[in-house]
Design a binder for these strands. Structure first.
Length: 343
RNA sequence: GCAGGGGUGGCGGAGCGGUCAAUCGCGCUUGACUGUAAAUCAAGUACCUUCGGGUUACACAGGUUCAAAUCCUGUCCCCUGCA
């Protein structure tokens, strides 16, 4: 796929946060069928650092991956680690400063810094730093989050244009915030649209308190952003959430669910009505069927449920690998079905 | 044979007169995970229950005591040292 066609069809990007999809080689990842992955600015900035990745030829060369690479801005990490006080740090009008729990070193993440790091990493698709918050914040907090997100987006865009003079073939996307306030979502979407980004990402927490996708908010963003630009539902989601998001017009997806769940024993299978097959459960100990009778992945073609069950139970890396390969293949097959209208 | 130590729930291992159905770890059962601090986390794990509680339980059999997994006696096992 050409970069210019990104998002024209549904696409699912596995998360290789620190430069690898856990337990998979780039070859194994490629064999699951995807054409792009997501990696993370903040994680790679802390270690090994953007300069080193640049010295080593960029993230694609470093991890020997020849697909499309999208780098997340680090906005979500600021939210999940700083706002929730898991990491020491503070958020200011310029971004965030925080101490790495690895070695206590202080880092600063501004809109400009985020773009610079993403450039050095050798990303194809960059994301402007946003002020990500929880779904249930007060209106005042949501307003502040939107204002900062807009200001940061403008600064990111400006810096991107400046650096892009020497770097061709890169795209920049932005993130729409506004929590569950529809008018703020609309305002944020409209203002970002004026800045003309290559793609529009739905940010914030996509799952409401009831555990359901915030479809209403997602629709408002669709209506108020340019039709010919991609809409990326960040962090979405469960198979049904992806189906529902695709139905209303989102085409770009990423989530840690298939990879994290694989490691935790929750596999996906079209053989199950709810797509879920908890392979470590006792009932699969003697099950010689493949995880999914319709699947063509390495795990399903060569191994039984009983084998994956046992390997995961004893904590063998091979179990993690097989489960991850399978779950990613499931997600890619789901996307293929969406693209051929057969789901 | 003599001397010493020990037998606790599926396993390992605490407790050493009442607050013990018995810390904890493992195992087992189930669930959660949505821009990854996550090969993580949560709940449950004798039996019965109208969820108030009730019934058997700490090798086995007796005993002391208001009260015993905890003290005493005997029996049966196990381990270590010396013969």
């Amino acid at each position: 796929m050409q970069l210019k066609d990104f998002g024209k069809q549904n696409i699912f990007m596995p998360d290789a946060t620190r430069g690898a999809v856990r337990f998979l080689t780039s070859k194994q990842l490629k064999e699951t069928g995807g054409e792009a992955l997501v990696t993370n600015t903040l994680h790679l900035m802390i270690t090994p650092g953007a300069d080193r990745i640049e010295q080593l030829g960029g993230i694609k060369s470093f991890m020997n991956y020849d697909g499309i690479v999208l780098t997340d801005s680090g906005g979500f990490q600021v939210f999940s680690l700083l706002h929730t006080k898991k990491w020491e740090g503070k958020i200011t009008k310029d971004g965030a400063t925080f101490k790495s729990p690895r070695d206590g070193k202080t880092f600063e993440l501004t809109p400009e810094k985020s773009i610079e790091v993403q450039m050095k990493l050798g990303s194809d698709i960059l994301v402007a730093l946003d002020d990500c918050r929880d779904a249930d914040i007060t209106r005042e907090e949501a307003e502040l989050s939107v204002e900062r997100t807009l200001e940061w987006a403008a600064r990111a865009k400006k810096h991107f244009e400046k650096l892009k003079l020497n770097e061709k073939g890169k795209l920049l996307s932005c993130v729409v915030q506004g929590a569950n306030y529809l008018d703020l979502r609309e305002y944020c979407a409209k203002e970002l649209s004026k800045m003309d980004f290559d793609g529009y990402n739905f940010g914030g927490y996509v799952i409401g308190e009831d555990g359901k996708l915030v479809v209403e908010e997602m629709e408002v963003v669709l209506k108020n952003t340019p039709e010919n630009k991609w809409k990326y539902a960040m962090g979405v989601g469960k198979p049904q959430d992806i189906i529902d998001s695709a139905k209303i017009g989102y085409t770009v997806f990423d989530t840690v669910l298939p990879t994290r769940n694989a490691r935790h024993g929750t596999l996906y299978s079209f053989d199950q009505s709810d797509y879920l097959l908890r392979v470590t459960n006792g009932e699969y100990a003697l099950d010689t069927a493949p995880i999914d009778s319709t699947c063509d992945c390495e795990a399903c073609r060569n191994y039984t449920r009983a084998y994956v069950h046992q390997m995961l139970r004893v904590g063998e890396g091979t179990g993690m690998t097989l489960a991850t390969i399978h779950n990613l293949r499931f997600y890619q097959r789901l996307i293929e079905k969406l693209n051929t209208n057969s789901v």
